[in-house]
Nucleic acid binder design. Structure first.
Lengths: 345, 345
DNA sequence: AAGAATTTTTTACACGCGTTAAGACTAAGC
DNA sequence: GCTTAGTCTTAACGCGTGTAAAAAATTCTT
């Protein structure tokens, strides 16, 4: 079953008996070639081992057919869900996706930008690291190719297309719910540095004020590595409990990973958060991390619409790619989240 | 701050005042150029906007400097940890990493293989989907370039280099532990289809037999989608509990995600698994999923040494790439896992 | 200062394919 | 049989860079 290996289109053309330009057109768009040739070529391809050279095909085209994606890190199921949704949408639209991960490191992130630029991708979808992000890299991206920010955006890049969740809607919804079923919630935040965490905190304060309640935010912790969300939640809430605080309050966590740490803290203090229980402690999260239905108790949260965010980002990017000449206005697309009421609140 | 854009090395050479071949050598290896030229070039590069064309640079080289990675899906923190470790090791060794995700789909997986082949990657590290994998794609990979399987391997590809965990050691260690602190464990397995799940089940049976115990395996569930591990664990153990089975047994789960579902089932039945508790129910997992320390109760498990696996895979791959002419013998590298005793068992 | 050693420039070809223009061929339509 | 449109082949150039050989320039040695 060892078919002869063929390395160039030239060789292939003599092997099949079709001219090279015809082959070239066939590989780019089979419908641009007559039916009889298509059959001839496809019959030939079964007898022979050949894959077109990726670099050579992309180098000499006006458009490379590649969409670049940069995500900050992988060890978070929220980003992997987002990435999956983006890759699916891009592949569906016929693009090759090149994903680069920053691995929480600004230098790696800058290198990722350079890689995408050097590959002349048609466009890029980027979720920045956070405040450590090297903005010069983004400035170069913006100057050279269509790109859209996804999920979070630095304050210094507010003039770029953006697709993400509507924090006012999402946080508002869960604040409303918590106020409906119990005392006004306390907010378990993150130390400053994370864009979305800040946005959510602001959204919390805003909604609480609108409802006539006093916002209460706490985030004290000794955890230095900000990527250890669960530890942060555990430490911060544990510290509060140890001072006798919030033992019978509603606690809204800035995201589900922090909430998972918070659930753990509650368990350590023998508390069982949940609307059904006496005692009054409630814990809610934000994001609908895939494990939420399986925590003990199952975590009440707000589900970001990951599928819609990824798809909208790709749609907008493709639109920009197809209209590079036109002077487009900035588009900010905020997507609604959905309340997921489970047991913990 | 807008530096003039330069698109080709030719232009760059006139802008800087250095010949193009010298620039070419500089970009590939700055030490191959005299100090004075290096300084001249680097001074020039600060005044000008230029990135070498990725495709053009790779097309005409004997080695592309790219390592391809294929992973089955992203929505599992174990794979993302593994991927991170591989990418880190590869980047450290000076390679560009191109990662392709199969998204649980054999067709996407085959396409990923084609993509890597068409990019003439120097080598590939692959974690196959499972039994649905299209083995022809792998046969082509094997024929054309150095590659090593990681984490799991199809029975039909046993002659390929492999790096993964030593299931006998890992499962043996947790079986031993469970037998030491309580009754011999029951094994909560997966429906057939997943290589590692099968290996672990066999390892469990073997160790139990060696210890003189009767192995007991159960995996009944209505869950059709095998990727929903937590649901499977919840459903299977829930069903057992509802029949009054295993309520005071030790339960070894095939992996941590199943164990998280099992913990949930226990909670639903008002049971609190853990060595410290009365009642006898114990639940243990396998993998050391990053959330294990934060489950309620914290999950006792066996930690796969993800860092070592990724690094060993890259090391072996690079060795094979550097010795493509030599007829190398197959190498199977099994790495030890470490018991993580927490609360659940 | 002359010669040797190193580095750079010049020149030219290569990589594999995209792309174009001109001509040759084929299958219709009259 | 002829024209016409559609499709193909031939021939040639281009993409941006790698790479090799020879000539030129620079630096180092003695």
């Amino acid at each position: 079953m060892n078919r002869p290996e063929i390395h160039t289109m030239e060789e292939l053309s003599v092997a099949i008996g079709v001219s090279r330009p015809t082959l070239s057109r066939y590989f780019q768009d089979p419908t641009s070639v007559s039916r009889s040739s298509v059959e001839k070529i496809e019959r030939g391809l079964t007898r022979v081992e050949y894959v077109p050279n990726f670099f050579a095909t992309r180098m000499n085209r006006k458009s490379t057919g590649i969409i670049g994606v940069i995500i900050p890190y992988l060890n978070d199921l929220f980003f992997t869900q987002l990435l999956e949704s983006v890759e699916r949408a891009a592949m569906h639209a016929g693009f090759t996706v090149i994903t680069q991960c920053s691995h929480s490191d600004p230098l790696t992130e800058s290198r990722a930008v350079e890689t995408l630029l050097s590959m002349s991708v048609d466009g890029a979808i980027v979720t920045p690291l956070g405040e450590q992000t090297d903005l010069r890299a983004y400035a170069r991206l913006k100057a050279k190719l269509p790109f859209v920010l996804m999920d979070s955006r630095p304050k210094t890049l507010m003039d770029v297309d953006y697709v993400g969740s509507d924090h006012l809607q999402a946080t508002g919804a869960i604040v409303d719910y918590l106020c409906r079923v119990g005392p006004p919630p306390v907010f378990l935040a993150m130390p400053p540095g994370n864009f979305n965490a800040g946005e959510r905190e602001r959204a919390y304060r805003k909604r609480m004020t609108e409802l006539g309640h006093e916002p209460v935010v706490f985030a004290q912790t000794q955890i230095d590595d900000l990527s250890h969300y669960e530890e942060h939640g555990l430490a911060a809430l544990g510290a509060a409990f140890s001072k006798g605080q919030y033992l019978d309050q509603s606690i809204l966590c800035v995201n589900d990973r922090v909430a998972i740490g918070a659930l753990r803290a509650a368990a350590q203090y023998g508390l069982e958060p949940g609307a059904q229980r006496r005692g009054g402690l409630r814990i809610a999260g934000h994001d609908d991390y895939p494990l939420c239905p399986f925590t003990v108790p199952a975590l009440t949260t707000v589900a970001q619409n990951v599928g819609a965010i990824g798809q909208a980002a790709i749609e907008r990017l493709i639109y920009k790619m197809q209209n590079r000449n036109l002077p487009l206005e900035q588009e900010v697309r905020l997507i609604d989240s959905e309340l997921k009421i489970r047991q913990s609140a």
